[in-house]
Design a binder for these strands. Structure first.
Lengths: 132, 132
DNA sequence: ACTTATTTCATATACAATATATGCAAAATT
DNA sequence: AATTTTGCATATATTGTATATGAAATAAGT
């Protein structure tokens, strides 16, 4: 997959990288069991520092999207999360986005149409959880 | 409305404040034409610095949720935004959230149920845009 | 017109987060 | 055991966040 980083964005570089990898997994561009480029390779390809890549990978690891081993690097390995905490955090994020949408003139129907369109357009694949 | 700031959160204080004010407007707790507390008052009530409050209000102003005048302070005055840019940004945020949800095991139906529940629970009011 | 009161805004500083450069540690392969 | 290749640790510079303080703007009162 192709990583595009916007150096002028207010979103930190490591967050942009993290986000694009998550999107890549969801779209099936990165498959369970695939390996990400090494931190050195990704840094070189993207024109950023290895430690910045390492930060993104670290976060993805702690969020449960990848597993890292020192010899082989970062493997796509998403873990489901049915915890109350995850769900609560998601609801909070969605609540804010819904509030903003409403205030900006995007009503409930429009919002749902947008979500449907996203599910269709991005072609989110059903991803098997990672079995150990 | 009651502002609650989590000083241990990774979300910057000014962002938390901004978010809660947006939620407050969407829920009708803050009405079009209402005035927010002055930056000094809000700072005192919340136990933070006036400049931190000022940053939040500044952002709300530039995002088009409030209007500020020097004499009277910050007035709730949300402006609709039908621009392509706003919509595009919203779709991008939603895309990422949808991708994460899917990877964490929350499928499309579940996601839509959650959104419905949010619309119902938060009781988002239809907010009249601010007429000048 | 001038003064007062009350508000936001500007400036400066300390601390935290981000991004980087470099070398160390771990682990499989040779 | 040595080599290779990988992530990880440490240190530093820059930028963002949070704060303290005073200046500027503006309506109301005298």
């Amino acid at each position: 997959m192709k990583i595009k980083l916007d150096m002028s964005s207010s979103i930190p570089i490591y967050v942009q990288l993290r986000n694009q990898i998550v999107m890549g997994i969801a779209k099936g561009e990165l498959q369970v069991g695939d390996y990400l480029p090494t931190v050195r390779q990704m840094a070189q390809d993207s024109g950023i520092n290895v430690m910045t890549v390492n930060k993104a990978y670290s976060i993805l690891k702690s969020e449960g999207f990848i597993e890292i081993d020192r010899r082989f690097g970062a493997k796509i390995c998403p873990r489901k999360d049915s915890s109350f905490e995850f769900r609560e955090k998601l609801e909070e994020e969605l609540s804010l986005i819904i509030a903003e949408s409403e205030l900006k003139g995007i009503d409930k129907n429009d919002f749902f149409e947008m979500c449907k369109s996203i599910y269709d357009r991005i072609n989110i694949v059903s991803v098997k959880g990672c079995e150990v």
